[in-house]
Design a protein around this nucleic acid. Structure first.
Lengths: 224, 224
DNA sequence: ATAAATATCTATCATCTGATATATTTTCAA
DNA sequence: TTGAAAATATATCAGATGATAGATATTTAT
């Protein structure tokens, strides 16, 4: 299918087999890149996990870096699926002038719950989150897209809502700092999943996390 | 100086030059391992940064893995210097039976402030924190020592204090979850230092972070 | 059925990586 | 000063890595 190397589009009339292979490679790459990062993941490991031979990676993605970028775009698409709806509601509500602290708190609760679900839900999510956090911690080829599509809007929305929850008693920098810390408390749970598992007998972690976040949001809306 | 490879001790009578070289290699390795992780950092990059030739790494640390472990031990030593005193106070206080929520909150504030200083203070700290977080996110040769010496006691102390701050209204799992999230909100600031810098015009970030942590602790002590 | 497009495979290359053998220089005790 | 230990340097090795050339197989349109 791909004659030009890093092609994402389909050929004019529908082949099948190729798309499945492409998806298998992408899944395998997300796991390997997520576990070890760009440099640590080898093309052979990815090919083995995908049950594909080595040149298939070049054939479908143009090379290791193209595959890495394709992973980033896949993650962004998943984020839009999971958080996009809430993000749209938040953006609309922020466009309107008046918003009570209680209304802002309710939106913030929804936003954080959606983020928690996207970041913490079992299975693929942990690899996605590790991938994103690794790229943020040491910027590589996919930094700009992940920052522009995931972190920047996430911080911006959370910060604006936090500022409105706290009314006048919170400048913009503090609101952004609180936003980063609140989101980081979620990503840290994924990065530390091994140590969290050792510390906590974990049946319903997602619910417990959302409850704690709601608690923190409630604390912000009460007068200090 | 080293005849047996991964030696940390000094030779019987005092040479000088070797210790300085060893320290230069260690510093360079902390930077490179912190930025890229074990696999991404190459021995040549480390040697170049330390202004040393390649065999010096084997000579002083027995190889790449020995150097990595030496970095971890250096970090642990730095943690003891920075947080050990507070940790001792916390341990002593927890040993005694009675502790009011207000006393627990005061100790928790001190502990979190010390952790924030250790994790966020400028310069070497960011490489240290990145090193630790990377090892926690994908366990390697240094996982056990970093978990046993840094994360486990940190979580344990914070969780016990949180449980006492909240009195009966907080089971052990919730306290540990809150502890992990609170500490992760700090490490996330280091991992996301590039995006934090974009979002926040940062003069006194450390003070602002400590203020926010104190705010969260105050919220926990107030009745829900 | 046939040719072209699409997909998969084997074999191999140039480069990089960690490590070491070995030579040379420096340091210090006697 | 002299000899041994300690430290630094050069050159090189075996293996891994990303990538590609080129052969082969499969699918689709005509």
């Amino acid at each position: 299918m791909p004659r030009d190397m890093p092609s994402t589009a389909r050929a004019p009339s529908g082949y099948r087999k190729g798309e499945e292979t492409r998806a298998r490679i992408l899944d395998a790459a997300l796991v390997e890149f997520g576990l070890g990062g760009y440099a640590a993941a080898t093309t052979r490991q990815i090919a083995d996990r995908a049950e594909v031979n080595l040149p298939a990676l070049t054939y479908y993605f143009g090379g290791k870096e193209g595959l890495y970028l394709a992973c980033a775009q896949t993650i962004v698409a998943g984020y839009r699926d999971g958080v996009g709806h809430v993000a749209l509601d938040v953006t609309r509500a922020l466009g309107q002038a008046d918003m009570t602290p209680a209304e802002a708190a309710a939106l913030l609760r929804r936003l954080m719950a959606a983020l928690a679900h996207f970041l913490l839900s079992a299975g693929e999510a942990s690899h996605r989150t590790l991938f994103v956090q690794r790229e943020i911690a040491s910027p590589g080829p996919a930094f700009e897209i992940l920052y522009a599509e995931l972190w920047r809007p996430g911080i911006a929305m959370a910060a604006e809502l936090i500022a409105r929850v706290r009314g006048g008693g919170c400048d913009e920098d503090e609101a952004r700092l609180r936003a980063v810390m609140m989101i980081s408390s979620l990503t840290g749970l994924v990065e530390g999943r091994d140590i969290v598992a050792r510390a906590i007998g974990d049946p319903d972690q997602l619910d417990a996390v959302v409850a704690i976040l709601n608690d923190q949001i409630d604390a912000m809306v009460r007068p200090a």
